[in-house]
């Protein structure tokens, strides 16, 4: 068989199988090999055209900065003459760990995360169970509950500063009309952090509800039917079917929530600027201040690497401890 007959033009150089009916095994194997090559050849160029620019971008804007962060944390970074920044070993880390403001901001950030968990998880679970149980209007409810997620955090922060103003804010006026106590919300050292977390919960609830509802609706209905036959009540159904089978979704949510809370910046920055005093000063605000107000790049990066280590440990712990045993 001539070489040019084997390759049929117009079909991307792919040999036609019927031409080879009755051929011996080695010929068939060769055809198969060539067919595979012909099918994969254009992929090489397209793949290259996609991968090369992607890798260049990742090299410059992702891998590069991540790798640069490590030596930077061990230097006294000179902005005017970066090439001659002296190596200071662990001094940056020592400075960071000894800093009073850092301790306060770390404590605030952890408190923020704990409060956010205790508010967000039960509330979003409860709302999603309700959502999964309504026969009508689920999409409408979901669309409305999701609305705060869409709106920018800066606008939401300004909105709540107005609404929660102790004297002229709408919330306290409403409370006054009902003759209820009127807290000073963001202006009181004791309530400021909790108020920030409440606002964060208000903004983030829809996101968690949508993920959890999708998870609940994904649980096979046969399990609930079986439970029905066994005569279980609503609570048992939730406790022994919904909750264990929602394990993977809950794990995802706890991981995302922890990562998000430990990096809180915009809300406290716009809501309170960290105040009153340092009541809502978060860890990322400390990093921002060190980097772009004090211009101490080395110290800021050292603080950021510490944060990275903590987040990594917490995420790995969550993945290890909370990994669900059940699946469907």
């Amino acid at each position: 068989m001539a070489e040019k007959e084997r390759l049929v033009a117009g079909a991307g150089g792919i040999p036609r199988a019927e031409m080879w009916r009755g051929s011996d095994a080695t010929t068939l194997a060769r055809i198969r090999r060539e067919a595979r090559k012909a099918l994969r050849k254009p992929q090489f160029w397209f793949g290259l055209a996609v991968l090369v620019p992607s890798l260049i971008w990742y090299g410059i804007f992702s891998f590069g900065p991540i790798l640069q962060a490590f030596p930077m944390a061990f230097r006294y970074y000179k902005i005017v003459d970066p090439a001659h920044s002296p190596w200071v070993g662990l001094d940056n880390f020592r400075f960071v760990l000894g800093d009073q403001l850092l301790r306060i901001s770390a404590k605030n950030t952890v408190t923020w995360a704990v409060l956010a968990f205790t508010l967000m998880l039960p509330l979003s679970l409860f709302i999603s169970v309700c959502l999964a149980n309504v026969a009508r209007g689920r999409n409408l409810y979901q669309a409305i509950i999701f609305l705060p997620v869409v709106v920018s955090l800066v606008a939401v922060s300004l909105l709540f500063r107005m609404v929660l103003d102790p004297e002229v804010g709408q919330v306290n006026r409403l409370l006054a009309m009902l003759s209820l106590p009127q807290p000073r919300w963001l202006s009181d050292t004791k309530t400021a952090l909790l108020t920030c977390v409440l606002i964060g919960t208000w903004k983030g609830l829809g996101f968690h509800v949508v993920i959890l509802t999708a998870g609940i609706l994904n649980i096979p209905t046969e399990l609930y039917d079986a439970a029905q036959v066994d005569g279980v009540n609503e609570w048992q159904r939730f406790r022994h079917i919904t909750l264990p089978l929602l394990g993977h979704t809950l794990l995802l949510i706890t991981v995302l929530l922890a990562i998000g809370c430990l990096q809180e910046f915009t809300a406290p920055f716009v809501l309170t600027e960290g105040g009153p005093g340092t009541a809502t000063y978060t860890y990322n605000m400390f990093i921002y201040k060190e980097a772009f107000q004090q211009m101490r790049f080395g110290i800021a990066t050292a603080a950021a690497l510490l944060q990275f280590a903590v987040i990594l440990v917490i995420t790995l712990l969550q993945l290890k401890l909370l990994r669900p045993q059940w699946s469907y």
Binding site: P65, A69, A300, A304, F308
Partner: peptide, 20 residues
């Protein structure tokens, strides 16, 4: 490797990215 970059908090790359 690409996915692992999602683990790195933005604060870590804040300064190096700014310099880049």
């Amino acid at each position: 490797i690409l996915l692992s970059t999602m683990m790195v908090p933005f604060a870590v790359v804040l300064v190096p990215l700014y310099l880049t």
